[in-house]
Structure formats: structure tokens, C-alpha cells
């Protein structure tokens, strides 16, 4: 068996936790329990987990506005995440950040980011620190196909190549930059070809296939740890929900999402593969499903019961002076 059973169970648990968390977020948003703008990552779980499963808390990731999956894959506590997304004072950022600005520095999760292209330059900084301090740690930026067209992202790629930074640029190409086709927004035929032009190895994988994605990222991560510089990985995937929760998605084709959920579901593909290969038993995964259902239920219950921040004390905390 090419993968250890424990590894496969961890991968499955992480992916399934993301799926359940996101689907519950959608439900809670619709029910009025989650305020603001929320962007769900269900459908894209395999990439987050493939990128983060071998990372330590000292390896850094920078995320996007669609960041819940990256948080969970990096080990953030789902209860504390739910509290944050509900704006409670015991949330990961004391309720000050919310879904689009969630971070967990102790876990090496540098932050979701509500500015498209905001993350890659910062992740270069984390990679520069690792290189300069000789820590052997790596840094991973998650990007969308939309972020690929920001100047900030392109500058970060070039600098990562120039300085040979241990930075893995992961492009989750879900086909849509908000409500615009990824192909429309990209002036060339292939993002991977363009990224190779920055002077780094660039690979395109099927992001619905956990194993293909994991193997590509594993090589890139090892290269970064060995001082071999940055890599670009474009993982083609499917966004099951809208750009934001509540997006009517008028721009998507008829039955597109329905068909993707049937044929391109990374969790189903994972389950089918490990069962077919005889690597895991369905019962083991079903048991995990039950545990996760309870965990998410508890996260929501605890989130709804958690106290709101107190403006008298919390509005003006975490600032260096008060005006």
C-alpha cells in the first residue's frame, strides 16, 4: 500500500470536515446566524488537504477570501472558526476578523484575505524569513484563477524566482473569478505555461484527485525545503457553491453544478479510490463521518451560545492608542 492507513484517514477526515463545515456555514448563513460576506470552498477540499497535510505549524500558509478549507486543513479548531465566523468574542480573531479575515498564527495560518492578490507577497515574506533564518520551513500561498491576474501576484512570483524562495504557489482554478470565466480573464491558453515563464517549475493537476494533487505538491514542498526555490501548481477544481453564499449563480450553465457534484466530487472520488484499491474500509470512513457530524453540530451550538464581543472593552483593544 503506497500510503499509510493513518495518512489516508487523516486526509479523509480533513476533507470531510471541510465539506461538512462549509455546508453547515451555508445553512447557518441562510438561517441568519452567520453575518457578512461568506465564500464557501466546498468542492475544493482535496487541494487544501493535499497542500497542508504534511506541513507543520511552523510552515506558513496564506489564504484567500475562500479560506475556511485552508484553515481546517492547516489544523485550525473548527469550534473556534465557527465562533469567529459568527462574530463571537471567543472566535479565532475575537470576532474582529470574520470569514474573510480569519487567521491562526499559532497554526501557521497567516490569514484569509479579502483582497484578491493580497496574500502572495506576504507569503514571499514568510518564505524569505524561513530562507534567511535557515529554518527549513516552507510557505504556501493559495491563489484563485482570478488572483493570477493581479500585479501583486505576478510580482511575488517573479521575486520568489529571483530570490529562490521556498514558496509553493497553489492555484485553485475553479473556472470562475467571481462570476467571470477563468478563461475569459486569462490572456493566454494555460496559466501553468504562463507561470513557468516566471522561471519556476509549473505543473497542472486534476484538483479533484487528491492523490495526483498531493504527489505534485509533495515534490514541490521537498524541492522548497531542499533550497530548490518556488513551484507553481495549478489544480483544476470545481466550486460547488456561488462566489459568495447567496450568489444566484446565473452565469453558470444549466445542470453544471448538479453534474459536477455527481461526477467531480473530490470526496467521492477519494472514497471510491481507497475502497477500490483496498486501502481503507468504508466502515472506517463512515465512522469518521459520524464523528464529524457531531463535531460540526457542537461547533454550531457552541458558536451560537458564545458571547458577543463587548464594545465597551473590545472595540478599542488591540490598538496602540485610542482616539
Amino acid at each position: 500500500m503506497p500510503y499509510h492507513e493513518d495518512f489516508l484517514l487523516r486526509a479523509y477526515r480533513s476533507m470531510k470536515t471541510i465539506r461538512e463545515f462549509e455546508e453547515r456555514c451555508i445553512k447557518e448563513f441562510m438561517g441568519g446566524n452567520v453575518p457578512g460576506f461568506v465564500h464557501a470552498s466546498n468542492g475544493q477540499e482535496a487541494i487544501a488537504v493535499a497542500a497542508c497535510i504534511d506541513l507543520s505549524n511552523s510552515d506558513i500558509i496564506g489564504s484567500t477570501h475562500r479560506g475556511h478549507g485552508h484553515c481546517i486543513a492547516k489544523g485550525c479548531d473548527v469550534g473556534d472558526m465557527m465562533k469567529e465566523i459568527m462574530g463571537r468574542s471567543s472566535g479565532l480573531c475575537k470576532g474582529k476578523g470574520g470569514s474573510m479575515h480569519i487567521a491562526d498564527i499559532d497554526k501557521g495560518m497567516l490569514g484569509a484575505n479579502a483582497i484578491v492578490g493580497g496574500g502572495p507577497p506576504l507569503v514571499n515574506g514568510a518564505a524569505l524569513a524561513a530562507k534567511t533564518l535557515g529554518t527549513n520551513h516552507v510557505a504556501v500561498s493559495f491563489n484563485g484563477d482570478g488572483s493570477a491576474n493581479q500585479g501583486t501576484t505576478m510580482e511575488a512570483m517573479n521575486m520568489a524566482a529571483v530570490l529562490q524562495l521556498p514558496h509553493i504557489f497553489i492555484y485553485e482554478n475553479n473556472g470562475y473569478a467571481e462570476g467571470t470565466s477563468a478563461n475569459y480573464g486569462l490572456g493566454c491558453d494555460s496559466l501553468t505555461d504562463r507561470n513557468a515563464g516566471f522561471g519556476m517549475p509549473a505543473e497542472c493537476v486534476d484538483g479533484n484527485d487528491f492523490f495526483a494533487t498531493y504527489e505534485a505538491i509533495k515534490v514541490a514542498t521537498q524541492r522548497a525545503r531542499d533550497g530548490g526555490g518556488p513551484t507553481s501548481i495549478e489544480a483544476k477544481c470545481v466550486r460547488f457553491d456561488g462566489h459568495f453564499i447567496g450568489d444566484p449563480q446565473l452565469y453558470r450553465g444549466e445542470n453544471e453544478v448538479k453534474n459536477a457534484r455527481k461526477d467531480q466530487d473530490c470526496l467521492k472520488i477519494f472514497r471510491d479510490r481507497v475502497i477500490k484499491e483496498g486501502w481503507l474500509k468504508a466502515a472506517a470512513m463512515n465512522a469518521i463521518d459520524k464523528e464529524i457530524a457531531l463535531e460540526i453540530e457542537k461547533a454550531v451550538e457552541d458558536g451560537l451560545a458564545a458571547p458577543h464581543p463587548d464594545p465597551a472593552t473590545d472595540l478599542m483593544s488591540d490598538v496602540y492608542c485610542s482616539y
Partner: peptide
């Protein structure tokens, strides 16, 4: 960005 929406997509134009 998205002043119309749906550019290059299979669904409706002017989606946003």
C-alpha cells in the same frame, strides 16, 4: 470587475 458579469460563462450574461 463584474460590471456586467458572466463573461465567457455558459450561463446568463449580465449576471451581476
Amino acid at each position: 470587475e463584474e460590471v456586467s458579469g458572466g463573461a465567457g460563462c455558459d450561463g446568463q450574461d449580465d449576471a451581476y
